[in-house]
């Protein structure tokens, strides 16, 4: 119950952009104020290809080390020209502010000799208010 309340409070101050088509991820910048020990960001990965692709969402710190964030969903299939919301809840980890990168990653053409992974990263800044 407490967890649900925490999440709800965090969501009330989350970035809530309007989804846009034909972009790999929006928004790519955001600043979030939260009164709890987590902050939430909603991002919208999009598939600009004319075929379904597998998309993964990862959260990194400023040094590109993985951050233990809750990502819903973290891996999914995205249809052609489609976009969907992904909720990312990032813990402050005892700090009063935290900068993270939320990255949308995909390898649209796997099983080739030299594969290219496209990674679109947004930078988000969470402030913990007391």
């Amino acid at each position: 119950m407490i967890s649900a309340r925490t999440l709800t409070m965090a969501l009330t101050v989350a970035v809530t952009p309007v989804a846009a088509g034909a972009q790999s991820m929006s928004p790519m910048r955001g600043e979030v104020n939260s009164f709890t020990d987590v902050f939430a960001v909603r991002v919208f990965p999009a598939n600009p290809y004319d075929r379904k692709i597998k998309v993964e969402i990862h959260v990194y710190d400023q040094d590109f080390q993985p951050v233990d964030a809750r990502i819903s969903p973290s891996v999914f299939q995205l249809g052609s020209q489609a976009s969907r919301p992904v909720l990312v809840v990032v813990p402050f980890g005892g700090a009063t502010e935290r900068k993270v990168r939320i990255c949308t990653e995909s390898i649209p053409f796997p099983n080739q000799q030299t594969q290219i992974r496209a990674q679109i990263c947004g930078k988000f800044f969470g402030h913990r208010k007391s």
Binding site: Q23, S24, P27, M28, R29, Y49, F109, Q113, T114, I120
Partner: peptide
């Protein structure tokens, strides 16, 4: 806002 789209055309 700042946006970026990467579309892979061919692998190497």
């Amino acid at each position: 806002t700042a946006t970026c789209t990467l579309v892979i055309a061919t692998n190497g």
